[in-house]
Design a protein around this nucleic acid. Structure first.
Length: 602
DNA sequence: GCAAGGTC
């Protein structure tokens, strides 16, 4: 350290956006001018500030995620150079990739590290961030072994968090970083060994319908196989479904249309309405049997006959109350992809790609985030106002501002401590949107409408729950009148409704149902997995991360393990199903069950 | 020709 002078401090963030954000906070005002790094996306900011009670000359720069990648040395890269199982013993090396931007980032870091006294690591506060910290340390120490190295731990790019981080600098945690090294090594060995094994074993034994030049690639991966597992298990559940008959009593009452209490007439099954169909505006109630479905025909028939023989309904409960339908919480990546799939029928990977383009063009905030709550102090109202002149939703925005439809957004309880929920950052006019391809327009519109919805007041309805007793059997129905649609007006992807025209009922009142039937049905198999459901299952089972789940799904179709139907459902191919079946036959279901990944992460 | 994880 130089005597008397300022301490020279190199700061490194995980991405340029955090570098900018933290710099702005540390200088306490506007972003200072930057000078270029060797990577075009990662400039360096120079400024002075106080850190740990010292005057510091700071140079703040960033990387773009991992600075290094892991792979086998050249002599093991050729597929025929060794047997697949040797890949479990072969050496692996972690190196800066010479063919991409990583080498430029390394040059910047080394240039700055040579003349620095301290190195402060401002990487994301998670395991991967800790691992990247050690990659940065490695390249910096190479040129300057005397660096004093510190880790800043912050959970949001806001002054309070950043100031707390600089007052509580810690040493980087090597154990956490090594956990990631272990994960990387296992993923590589397992993936490469089994990919080569499966491919070399099977490529010439079957007639693969392969559409690419390179021949079949039967890849294995600890995330792609569990993903395929969800798809195949659903297909197996469909194949194994045995339809069963069930019976249920349907009871209907049309106001002013009492049935005949005398019961059955001749062979007619059940109580018949007196005269024709009810008029469309006539109040009507369809009651559901409390027992739901009965699979014993005889028992159902006996209960039904009891009702028919004494068809007087007594109202045992009739209660009305105000009910609310709440808007969704702010949008994170996973939820954006699920809703993109449900509402727009876009693939998860495509949705993210389009959101990324919109982010690059300044229309949306950063689209890869787990966060579903806005940090305290966000000017949400300002972001709402920015949409007030839009031709499609501007009128609604005005009502938010002037008619009290606005309400601070709720929280979904997730926070990645780096980015806010996905929201619009700029208003795109209809004309501007018109220059984009339709799916891109749809993604922008979804994000805007979702944002406006999540800071709107709930929809209000009046619901009525009615319970009746016929010969000791209970039936119930619900009426719902939507009084104020509020957020549903702008969020046109969802609706809310119910029986708005329920007859009047009060406790103790009796009536004869207009009709009563014993209805027969058959159980249906489940449906193939949709993308939204698949994403949820991956999320619940810890398969992939929010940033990679869509890619694993893509891999399924690229490898011809599964296809997407016109109805947007995933169906395994013969190849995908056969591969999993083979591991079942060999008694190795754990090769594709999610428990393997979960245990490894643990 | 392999994995999954960061990120632009």
């Amino acid at each position: 350290m130089r005597h008397g002078g300022a301490v020279r401090v190199l700061c490194v963030a995980e991405k340029p956006s955090v570098c900018r954000g933290v710099t702005e906070i540390l200088v306490g005002g506007r972003l200072p001018p930057s000078r270029p790094g060797f990577s075009n996306y990662n400039p360096v900011y120079d400024f002075q500030c106080q850190l740990r009670g010292r005057n510091c000359d700071v140079r703040f720069t960033s990387v773009s995620g991992h600075l290094m990648g892991i792979d086998f040395p050249d002599r093991f890269r050729k597929w025929t150079s060794c047997s697949p199982e040797q890949l479990f013993e072969a050496p692996v090396q972690k190196i800066v990739n010479q063919e991409n931007n990583q080498v430029n980032l390394k040059r910047t870091l080394q240039r700055e590290a040579t003349t620095s006294d301290w190195l402060i690591l401002w990487l994301d506060c998670d395991r991967e961030g800790e691992n990247i910290a050690f990659e940065v340390i490695e390249v910096c120490r190479e040129v300057n072994p005397r660096l004093d190295i510190w880790r800043a731990r912050f959970s949001a790019v806001i002054p309070r968090e950043i100031n707390q981080a600089i007052n509580n600098l810690v040493r980087p945690n090597e154990n956490e970083a090594m956990a990631v090294d272990a994960r990387q090594e296992i993923d590589l060995r397992l993936g490469a060994a089994f990919t080569r094994f499966q491919t070399l074993l099977l490529q010439n034994r079957f007639d693969f319908e392969w559409h690419e030049d390179k021949g079949p690639l039967l890849s294995y991966g600890p995330c792609q196989f569990p993903t395929l597992g969800f798809i195949v298990e659903r297909a197996w559940a469909i194949a194994a479904h045995v339809a069963e008959d069930f019976w249920t009593i349907k009871c209907c009452y049309v106001e002013g249309r009492q049935g005949d209490p005398g019961g059955r007439e001749g062979d007619q099954p059940g109580l018949q309405p007196g005269r024709g169909r009810p008029a469309p505006n006539q109040a009507k109630a369809d009651f559901n049997w409390r027992r739901g479905r009965m699979f014993d025909h005889m028992a159902a028939t006996i209960l039904y006959e009891m009702c028919i023989d004494a068809p007087i309904a007594t109202v045992t409960k009739a209660s009305g109350r105000e009910s609310l339908k709440h808007p969704p919480v702010p949008l994170n990546t996973l939820e954006m992809q699920k809703r993109g799939s449900r509402y727009l029928r876009l693939g998860a990977e495509q949705t993210l790609q389009l959101a990324e383009e919109l982010y690059q063009a300044g229309f949306l905030s950063y689209p890869r985030t787990e966060t579903d709550a806005f940090p305290e102090g966000t000017d949400v109202m300002g972001m709402v106002e920015a949409q007030q002149h839009h031709e499609r939703w501007g009128a609604y925005v005005l009502r938010m501002m002037n008619d009290g439809l606005y309400r601070p957004p709720g929280s979904g309880g997730h926070n990645d401590e780096a980015h806010p929920p996905i929201h619009p950052t700029k208003c795109a006019s209809v004309q501007e949107m018109g220059t984009w391809p339709p799916p891109k327009q749809q993604v922008y519109e979804l994000v805007v409408r979702h944002f406006l919805a999540c800071c709107s007041i709930p929809a209000v309805g009046q619901s009525t729950d009615v319970e009746i007793d016929i010969a000791g059997e209970l039936f119930s129905t619900r009426g719902l009148i939507v009084k104020q649609r509020n957020w549903l007006e702008v969020y046109r992807y969802e609706s809310w409704g119910g029986n708005a025209n329920l007859p009047f009922f009060e406790e103790g009142m009796t009536f004869v149902p207009s009709s009563m039937f014993l209805e027969q049905g058959r159980t249906q198999p489940p449906n193939y997995l949709g993308e939204a459901e698949l994403l949820s299952m991956m999320d619940q089972n810890g398969i992939g991360t929010d940033a990679t789940m869509a890619q694993h799904i893509e891999t399924m179709t690229k490898r011809n393990y599964a296809t997407k139907t016109e109805a947007n459902l995933f169906k395994p191919t013969k190849l995908g199903e056969a591969l999993l079946s083979a591991y079942v036959e060999m008694g190795m279901v754990n090769m594709w069950k999610p428990v393997l990944r979960a245990a490894m992460e643990q």
